[in-house]
């Protein structure tokens, strides 16, 4: 799978994903839990799946904890992560999303997400879906009661379907939706606005029209990058 190497590989477009659901039954799961910091020292974007929920998945000797969801055979191979409110709070580390993706998840469903985490998902072709508390609760019940419970998430139609449930519609803003559907590279997209950016820069330094004066009135007065520190 090509994952978001912004600008070079496009993201894998997201249209329909069908897959098993793994439940993480805790509120306020923060990114320190999703990927503990000792694994942030790599300099690539791949290979984080093995560290996903590390401290919950393994004991201090590095042995799997059988009681943890991802270690239970019935959840192996899941593509949809079902979670509780305020998922992904805390640190802005994108490694959290890289780990979720690398592990094999393409969708995260929760009543709410932290803002930075939500953005990071979109940057990497992971679809964050927020549903009402009741809907999420009913999905949790299904996942616990039915072995191998799976869902189909259709981004084009903005719907979730699965055995024994009514179709669940979900909201997503048009721009992120388009981005995911087409696997758009955001930098390339933005560079189409090059004239606007240049215009803004000119306006900024050539007139007093725009607040603020952030680096002197004159572009030339800025420090040069070659200053030594």
């Amino acid at each position: 799978m090509d994952i978001g190497y912004g600008g070079y590989f496009l993201l894998e477009p997201f249209k329909i994903v069908t897959g098993m659901v793994a439940p993480i039954d805790r509120v306020n799961v923060d990114t320190d839990q999703i990927v503990p910091k000792q694994f942030l020292k790599l300099t690539q974007r791949t290979g984080y799946g093995q560290y996903l929920f590390y401290d919950w998945r393994y004991d201090s000797q590095g042995n799997p904890r059988n009681e943890f969801v991802l270690n239970q055979p019935r959840y192996h191979g899941s593509k949809v992560l079902l979670a509780r409110a305020n998922f992904g709070s805390g640190s802005s580390r994108e490694h959290a999303v890289w780990a979720i993706l690398d592990y094999g998840f393409r969708v995260v469903i929760a009543p709410s997400f932290s803002d930075i985490f939500y953005n990071n998902c979109l940057q990497n072709g992971v679809l964050p879906v927020s549903l009402s508390y009741e809907k999420v609760e009913s999905l949790f019940r299904k996942v616990y009661s039915v072995d191998g419970y799976y869902l189909t998430v259709n981004l084009e139609e903005q719907s979730i379907t699965g055995p024994e449930i009514e179709l669940i519609p979900f909201d997503i803003e048009p721009f992120p939706r388009k981005k995911l559907l087409e696997g758009l590279d955001e930098v390339a997209w933005t560079l189409q606005h090059e004239t606007h950016i240049t215009e803004y820069e000119t306006r900024r330094w050539d007139s007093d029209q725009v607040l603020p004066v952030s680096h002197g009135r004159n572009k030339k007065e800025q420090m040069s990058a070659s200053d030594q520190f």
């Binding site: 978001g4 999303v97 940057q123 721009f175 933005t190 560079l191 606005h193």
Partner: peptide, 19 residues
């Protein structure tokens, strides 16, 4: 605060998309 993909985006464009 932004994620790493956004860091790359700001490096390349000096701009950021925000809702």
């Amino acid at each position: 605060g932004i994620g790493t993909s956004e860091v790359e985006h700001v490096l390349a464009t000096q701009c950021i998309w925000q809702r």
